[in-house]
Amino acid sequence: MNNESITIPTKDTPKPHNDKKVLLEAMKYRYATKKFDPEKIISDEDFETLLEAARLSPTSFGMEPWKILVIQNRKIREEMMPYG
C-alpha cells in the first residue's frame, strides 16, 4: 500500500453570515410583479443567477425535484399561456 498523501481540491465557499437584521430585511422584501415588459431583456449573468437560485430552492423533503423549462421563443410562450 502506498503511503503518499492525496490532496483533494476543494472550493472555498463563503460561510453564511448570521446577521439577523439583514435576514429579516430580506424576508420583509416581498415583491410580486403584476405586469411584465415583454421588451425588457435581462443579462445572461442575471438569468443564470435566477436559474441557480431556483435550482437551489429547498423543498420540505430536501429532494429538490425541480424541472425548469426555459422557453425563449415568444410564440411558444404565448401558445402556452392558457396552460399556466
Score class of each variant (00 low, 15 high):
T33D: 03
A26N: 11
D19L: 10
D37F: 04
L69V: 04
S60P: 00
L69G: 06
E4L: 05
V70K: 08
I8T: 04
P14T: 01
A26R: 12
I76G: 01
I42F: 01
P58D: 06
E64W: 04
P58A: 10
A26Q: 09
V70I: 14
E52N: 14
I42W: 00
N73E: 10
M63S: 12
T49Y: 01
Y83H: 11
K35C: 06
E4Q: 07
K20M: 13
F36R: 04
E39H: 04
K35H: 07
Y29V: 11
A54D: 03
I6Y: 06
S57N: 09
R55G: 11
P14N: 06
T13P: 00
Y83E: 08
N73M: 07
K21N: 10
P65R: 08
E45P: 00
T49L: 08
K34E: 03
P9E: 07
E79R: 05
T10E: 02
R55I: 09
P82F: 00
T59F: 05
R74A: 08
K20Q: 12
I71G: 02
M63F: 11
P16V: 03
E45Y: 05
M27N: 09
D44P: 02
P82E: 03
D46M: 07
Q72V: 01
N2P: 05
N73P: 00
D19Y: 04
D37W: 04
E64D: 12
P58C: 07
L56A: 15
S57Q: 09
I68D: 03
E79S: 11
E79W: 00
E64M: 15
Q72R: 11
D19P: 01
